[in-house]
Each structure stands twice: as structure tokens, then as C-alpha cells.
Design a protein around this nucleic acid. Structure first.
Lengths: 250, 250
DNA sequence: CGGTTCATTGATTCGCGTCAATGCAGGTGG
DNA sequence: CCACCTGCATTGACGCGAATCAATGAACCG
């Protein structure tokens, strides 16, 4: 089926999901207060719900690829997503990571400007783009919210340009860890020790470095006493002041 | 006066400007069809005009600095602007250039996320942010247009991340020249030879390089026969296919 | 328990940065 | 009209931070 994500659609939308999506679905949604939905009153939420499909995906499944017609927008409910662009020879730049509460496709572009892939198991609320655009005409506060979120994304993108253009490897990694911590905190999740759901390769491709440099820089910060690495997928921010200083170019 | 740009406000808004802004001002505006205004009908344009001030600035004047409260949004009518972020030690990343028809502040953020400086003589239509936000409530098509423009900026920002994170100096410069050419064409201006209103330092800080590397790379492309440099502020795109290939990582 | 994948560490290379000198155009005053 | 300055831009010599190439280690898993 052409409009659905590639990769195993693991536990497909279940009957329970559908029932929930039909009756009370959003009431107990963990991300309601931090996502695009936060501006909607109950009646508006019900409208949005009519165009919503809950989708579950396995790690490594591709949501869509750069250049495809943009069929859907999504709200990440659970899990993590990476967005990336490729050069023909395979060089990759990850342009962002999405976590619960983040919205995929604020820009409303007709074609996807990047590819998207699940890092972990994923749960999404998915909206057909055309129906969403129609809905926006009736819910100006929803459109206003999208503009606000687009503004936040632009600010983040500009920070990332500063990072990629002008920061050293140490500064990049420090900025990255603090960004993850800030976002984890914003959605009320543990920020110290901080989970790192993505691989070293993903971190490298996000920071414009190689795997080896990321690894060496982790080691360096660990020997510094700035961080600790109890596991590969978890960092403890031991000296946060030091990280802040590094991130700002200190 | 605290709400006005620093730097000499060269030829301040003249009586003629005010008259024009009051009566027919937008009718003969060169950028009307490519700017934020293009979606407005005459009555709506008149509404927007009531909150508009025409501002003229000299080269090198600062429009605002990162971190300040965002008092105004602007539409560039004539001239060029650079947007940049600084690290405490002076490292600079230019995050964008604005040309006629471009809008400054689509994000509607409460504080400026970057500094803005005039590259050339400048003419702007300036709108108080709060009044603009009020107006958006009444003109949903204007808000929709801003969201569309924000989407375009996001796409450009992602392209720039790919450039900064993964492209070589040659590829960066090729991408840059093609981007300028594309935008010049979009506003109906000469694209070959292509004017370069910004300095080598600005180009370097936009591409995440040094002045020297930019200069050497220009020389290299010139010796290649890919471009010609009749003057310092003008490039001729001799072999555009080669540039395209380079820009895509060929 | 061997195989696979990913992270770490080491040795070496290289593209771009740094430092320094020279070139070149535009403005200014004698 | 020219000497001089000043602010870019270019060019050259050299160094360094991160990339590349290669090996080893550690976790996971069928």
C-alpha cells in the first residue's frame, strides 16, 4: 500500500487503538500538554481526531524519503526519529531528532525535504496532509500553533548552523548533550543520566563529525571528569557548568 | 530612540515616502508579487499599510542584535541584509542573507535569535510585531503565507546544515553561487554575471570557512574555467553544469 | 559459542586554518 | 596629479584538528 511507511509496520494499529482513537483517545495522552494539541479545546481535539491514525513502527523502519510527495504529517507520541539528507555519494547529514511531543512536517511542504527513520519503537499520530490543511482553515489557532512550532524549529536550525560552521568537536558534543538534556527535561523525562537512543554514527552525522571523532571526544570528556558513560547508551552529566561553558565556545 | 535601528538612519523616511505609504504606496512596489504581500487583496493591503513604516538604512548599520526584544518585523524592499550569530570569542556564523522580497522575522519570536546588519543601502517596510500579530488574527491568509515562508526557510536551513556538516570547500562555494543565482532569478534580477554584494569575510562566515579558503577556492574555480571573476563583486558562472555537479557532491 | 554489529583506540594523512606577506582599488590631502 | 593610507583580497608557507585507515574490544544474539 503506497501511502504507508516502509519497513515492518510492527504492531499495526490494533483494535484497541482504534477504539481509543474513537472514544477518549487523547484524554490520557502523555504528550497532550507539550505537543501541537495543547492549543485545542475538546471540540477541536475531536475534529483533529477524525483525521488521525495511530501508527506503530519498529526501529529502523523508514517513515518516508526525501523527495517523495508529502502524504502525511505526524505527531510523535512515543519513541525517537531521525531526519536526514544524503549526498549522492552517501555522505549523510542528520538535520534533527524528534522525540515525544515533536511534530513532523510543520513546514507543510508538498514534498519531503528530508528522509525520516525510526530510531526506536515508535508510536505516531498521523494526519493526511491535505485533510490537515483543510482543517487549518477552520482552526486558526491550530495554524497559529504550527507557525509557533516552525519558529522554534528555525531557531534550533540556526543554532545548529552555528555549531556546524564554527564549533570544535568538543563544543559540538557538549552542545548536543545539553540540547538532549533540555528537551528530555521539557517533556518530563530523566535528563541525568541522559539516555542516548541513537548510535554513535547518528551522533556523528548530526554533528558533522565521524564516528571516531565522536568516540574520542566522549573519551576525552570522560577523562576530564565532565561526563561519565556508565553504558554506551547513557551519559551522566557530571560537570554541567563545564559543559555549558564548552557549548558556548568557552 | 529605543525602538529604531542603530547606525545612521541615512535618508530617513521622507515626506514623499510617507505620502506614497499613505496613498498608492504598494501599487508600484517592485517586490509586491514575490513578497509576503502577494496573498493580500487591495483592502487587506491597505490594512497592512496602516502599520507599515518605510525605513532606509546605510550599509553596515545594525538593524538589531541577537537577544533583544523583537520590536519589529520587516520586509526587505531594496538592498541586502546579513543575519548572524556570534560566539563569545568572536567566531561568527552567518545564518542567512536577505534580498528584496525576503521577510525578516517570519518566526514571530519574542526575542531576536540572531543579529541583522545591512550589507548595502537598504529600504525596508517595517511592522511593529505586536500590531502584526493582532493583524494576523484578522487575516488568516497572511498567517498562512507566513507559515509557508517559514517552511521555505526551514528547507533552506536544512540544505545549509548539509552544506556545513558534509560538503567540501569547493562544494560549498558552488552551492552558494547557485543559491544566489537562483534567488536573483526568482526576483527577476541579473544572475549571470552574478553580483556579490557581500565581502569575502561574509561569504566565509556563511560557508563555515575562512577568508583565505574562500579566496583560494574562487581562484581554483577560476583556473578550472568553471567561473570568471571580472570584478571582485561579480562572478560569471561559465560552466553551470560543473557547478551543479559540484554542489551536489559530484 | 562463534558470528555480527557497534564502539573504542591507535597510526597516519590531509583539507582547511593560521600566520604572514603582497597586491590592489578607492579615498584623501598635499 | 601623485604619494600615501586604509581596507579588502590574494597568495604562500606551515601547522593542526579532524578524517581516514586499520586493529582491537565489548555487547548482543541466534
Amino acid at each position: 500500500m503506497s501511502t504507508s511507511p516502509r519497513g515492518q509496520e510492527a504492531a499495526r494499529t490494533t483494535t484497541a487503538d482504534r477504539l481509543r482513537a474513537f472514544e477518549s483517545p487523547c484524554d490520557d495522552c502523555a504528550i497532550r500538554e507539550t505537543s501541537v494539541c495543547e492549543v485545542l479545546d475538546p471540540a477541536q481535539l475531536a475534529r483533529l481526531r477524525t483525521i488521525t491514525t495511530v501508527v506503530r513502527l519498529d526501529p529502523h523502519s523508514t517513515l518516508f524519503q526525501e523527495g517523495e510527495a508529502a502524504e502525511h504529517l505526524s505527531n510523535v507520541v512515543e519513541g525517537a526519529v531521525k531526519l536526514y539528507k544524503l549526498l549522492p555519494d552517501g555522505r549523510r547529514q542528520i538535520t534533527g531528532f524528534l522525540f515525544p511531543g515533536d511534530f513532523l512536517g510543520v513546514a507543510l511542504n508538498k514534498t519531503y525535504a528530508y528522509s525520516a527513520e525510526a530510531i526506536t519503537k515508535l508510536r505516531l499520530c498521523r494526519f493526511p496532509r491535505q485533510r490537515m490543511e483543510n482543517l487549518l482553515k477552520e482552526l486558526p489557532n491550530l495554524e497559529h500553533r504550527l507557525l509557533e512550532m516552525a519558529g522554534n524549529e528555525l531557531v534550533a536550525a540556526q543554532d545548529q548552523m552555528l555549531l556546524l560552521g564554527r564549533k570544535t568537536a568538543r563544543e559540538r558534543l557538549a552542545s548536543f548533550l545539553l540540547m538532549l538534556a533540555r528537551r528530555a527535561r521539557a517533556r518530563g523525562q530523566p535528563e541525568n543520566p541522559l539516555p542516548l537512543p541513537m548510535s554513535r554514527a547518528d551522533i556523528a552525522d548530526y554533528l558533522g563529525l565521524t564516528i571516531e571523532t565522536v568516540s574520542r571526544t566522549f573519551t576525552q570528556l570522560r577523562k576530564d571528569g565532565t561526563i561519565a558513560l556508565p553504558e554506551q547508551t547513557r551519559v551522566e552529566l557530571v560537570n554541567r557548568a563545564k559543559l555549558e561553558e564548552l557549548a558556548e565556545g568557552g
